[in-house]
């Protein structure tokens, strides 16, 4: 085995340079040239300041905004330096209590909404940074947002419909609504009350 040590060391060094420096360097160069916006995090700017990323969820609590899913990332949720799910299992009392509290809150926030609550509205996502909610979740919140902004539910529903992203290639994943995108569109079309 001793005579193998020399080629082994050289091989590790060589492949480290090739796959650890050259490869990511070249990819970074190409991505920065061809896909600059995506490569830098699909950041959204307003008046020159970064207000977030189209891909990273952020918290909303005010009634005039659509609310994202509960988040387990960081202490206050939606912390991109601590992406995480709750990792609570199906027989966890803590999870059950959390869901119950979230269900009560959702009913309180959206008194006009009857019927079963969409599953994504109460459950925490895997990343804790889920930027999206289901279409049914957005529709369930529409009446509240409309009331808070003093506009018609119909107008909000229309906005939700136009913000809905279909399945990739028509069949992959689920249809969904980007919360930050939808709230920005709201602010743009209807002034806050």
């Amino acid at each position: 085995m001793l005579q193998e040590l020399k080629p082994a060391l050289k091989m590790v060094l060589l492949l480290t340079i090739a796959t650890g420096l050259v490869y990511p360097g070249v990819i970074t160069g190409l991505c920065q040239v061809f896909f600059k916006n995506a490569a830098n995090g699909s950041l959204i700017r307003q008046n020159g300041h970064v207000i977030g990323s189209a891909l990273i969820g952020q918290n909303f609590t005010r009634p005039e905004y659509f609310h994202p899913r509960p988040s387990a990332a960081g202490n206050d949720g939606y912390d991109p330096t601590a992406s995480s799910g709750s990792n609570l299992g199906p027989t966890s009392q803590k999870l059950f209590d959390r869901l119950k509290a979230a269900a009560d809150q959702f009913r309180k926030d959206n008194p006009d909404f009857k019927g079963p609550i969409p599953a994504d509205a109460l459950t925490a996502s895997g990343s804790g940074l889920d930027p999206e909610i289901s279409v049914a979740n957005a529709q369930a919140q529409a009446a509240r947002v409309a009331k808070a902004r003093g506009i018609s539910v119909d107008a909000v529903d229309k906005l939700v419909a136009s913000a809905t992203e279909a399945r990739s290639l028509g069949f992959l994943g689920e249809p969904r609504v980007n919360v930050l995108g939808l709230n920005l569109a709201l602010d743009q079309q209807f002034s806050k009350k």
Binding site: S86, N87, D120, T123, G126, E132, S134, Q139, E174, R176
Partner: peptide, 17 residues
């Protein structure tokens, strides 16, 4: 349902369902 994935969504992302 047409507007949401249902099932056990705890720990899952909306886009994947």
């Amino acid at each position: 349902t047409a507007g949401q994935a249902g099932g056990n969504m705890e720990g899952k992302e909306t886009r994947f369902g």
